Simulated scan of single mutants.
Amino acid sequence: MNDSPKSRAGRRVVALPPEIIPDLRAHLERFAETHENGRVFTGPNGGPLKHSGFRRTWHRTCTAVGLPDLHFHDLRHVGNTLAASTGASLKELMSRMGHSSTRAALIYQHASQGRDRAIAQALGNAFQVARETKIENASGT
């Protein structure tokens, strides 16, 4: 099994929101191996996480919380969609996600009514500032 990312873009440092650091620390203290190259996720007995065991646990947990069709990779999609909704540029999203092509990153830039309203409001604000500047310049103040 190859442990390397698919492309050079896949090897990167990604900033995390400081609000999640306490949860990450709690996870590391409770579940992760403590040595320098230790695993962040381990199996039930502390060894390597096996695909079959993880799948069973994942499906059981998803069903228990009412999301029986949720796939693990869907978490990446949600995270990347949320990152895109912050207004990040395509290049910023590509860097954050480890994509070397725009095609892959464009998948996460979903249009939404809420975002469309925010864009309209920002355009309206810019228009208002331009109008006020024009009026000020015309009146000589």
Rank of each mutant, 00 (worst) to 15 (best):
F127L: 14
S7K: 07
T61H: 11
A26R: 13
L24D: 06
Q128H: 10
L75I: 02
V14P: 08
L106H: 04
S95N: 13
G47N: 12
S139L: 15
T81F: 01
G47P: 12
H71M: 13
G38A: 01
M94E: 01
P17K: 09
H71A: 14
I21D: 12
E92I: 01
H77N: 02
H35S: 12
A9F: 07
F72P: 06
T81C: 03
G66L: 03
A64T: 03
A104T: 13
T34C: 10
P48A: 14
P17T: 10
R12S: 05
T141I: 11
M97K: 02
S112Y: 06
C62K: 02
G43Q: 03
D23P: 08
G47W: 06
D23R: 13
S89F: 02
Q109W: 05
Q121T: 14
P5A: 03
A104P: 08
N45V: 14
N80S: 09
G46S: 02
P48F: 13
R115C: 00
E29G: 13
L82A: 12
T42I: 14
T133G: 00
T81G: 02
T63P: 03
G114Q: 07
H71F: 09
Q113D: 15
P5V: 07
S112N: 00
C62W: 00
G43N: 08
T34S: 15
L93S: 04
D116C: 04
D23F: 12
S85C: 03
G140F: 04
P5F: 00
I20C: 11
L49T: 09
T102C: 08
R39L: 15
N137H: 10
G10N: 06
P68H: 01
S139P: 11
D74C: 02
A130V: 06
V13Y: 13
I21E: 15
A64S: 12
L28Q: 12
R55M: 12
G66K: 00
L24K: 06
I107W: 02
H110N: 05
N125F: 10
G140A: 02
A32V: 05
H77T: 09
W58P: 05
Q121I: 12
R103V: 14
E33W: 04
L93K: 01
K6H: 08
G47F: 04
G114S: 01
H27M: 08
E92H: 01
A26H: 11
S7V: 06
A15I: 11
G114N: 09
F54K: 05
G87I: 07
G140Q: 01
A32Q: 07
A111Q: 13
